[in-house]
Simulated assay, not measured.
Amino acid sequence: MKKYPLPQEKIVELLTSEQIGRLATTGADGFPYITPVHFVFMSDKIFIHGLAAGEKLANIKKDDRVCFEVEKMHEYVQDELPCDTNTSYESVIIRGHAVLITDTDAKITVLNVLVDKYTPQHSGKSYPDAMLKMTGVVEISIESCTGKHYPA
């Protein structure tokens, strides 16, 4: 058991409020590959978007197992000894399975939520067909989710 587990409501708050997450996939060479991504948390899943082709999507097609991480740093916790200095933070680690969304309506639904979160001034606008074709949307089904914090 973790010393400072993050309560479920704080996990949801962090997944809803933070701007950048990190997606880890397994590369073709067997090494982990980590990518910072914009994301939304909805319907108990993580959704990300990016180009419809690239290393992270190639990795997901070969092995759908992924890890997703998000954190929020609050402040440094100073101590008299340098090794006892710490950081007050909250973090969430998710393990799950990723799939590329191919249904256009489902893709647009996710893109609308992403636009609302990151560029609300563009909410309600339509997406050109060419843009939809070159945009990949990934859905991560959560298999396990843990949160942790360190208090100030």
Rank of each mutant, 00 (worst) to 15 (best):
L15P: 01
E75N: 08
I101G: 03
V37G: 02
L51G: 15
V77K: 10
V77Q: 00
I11E: 09
E55I: 15
K10L: 12
A58Y: 03
K107N: 03
K133I: 06
V99K: 09
L57N: 02
F39A: 00
D64R: 09
V115T: 12
P128Q: 10
S141K: 14
E139Y: 07
S88M: 11
I94Q: 04
D116V: 00
K10F: 05
Q8T: 15
H97K: 11
V138N: 07
I142Q: 00
D105S: 12
I101V: 11
G30D: 02
K117P: 00
L111F: 08
V99F: 08
T26K: 05
A52G: 13
I94H: 06
M134T: 12
Q78G: 00
K45Y: 09
P7F: 08
Q121K: 15
T35V: 14
I48E: 06
I60M: 07
L15I: 03
K3R: 15
G54H: 10
Y4A: 10
N86L: 10
T102G: 14
M73G: 10
S17R: 14
D116W: 02
V92P: 00
D64F: 03
F68T: 02
I20M: 09
F47W: 04
V40N: 09
M1I: 14
D105M: 07
I48Y: 04
K45S: 14
G136F: 14
L81S: 11
L57S: 00
L6M: 06
P7T: 06
L23A: 00
V137R: 11
V110S: 09
V115S: 01
K56G: 01
L51R: 14
D105N: 13
Y150W: 05
G21R: 10
G124S: 13
I34S: 06
S144A: 07
S141A: 13
D29K: 07
Y76V: 09
C67N: 04
G21T: 05
K3G: 01
I94Y: 05
K3T: 05
K62E: 09
T146I: 03
D103R: 07
P128E: 11
M1N: 12
A24S: 12
V99L: 10
F41Q: 10
C83W: 01
H149S: 13
S141P: 01
A28Y: 08
E18D: 06
V77L: 02
M73S: 12
M73N: 12
P32L: 09
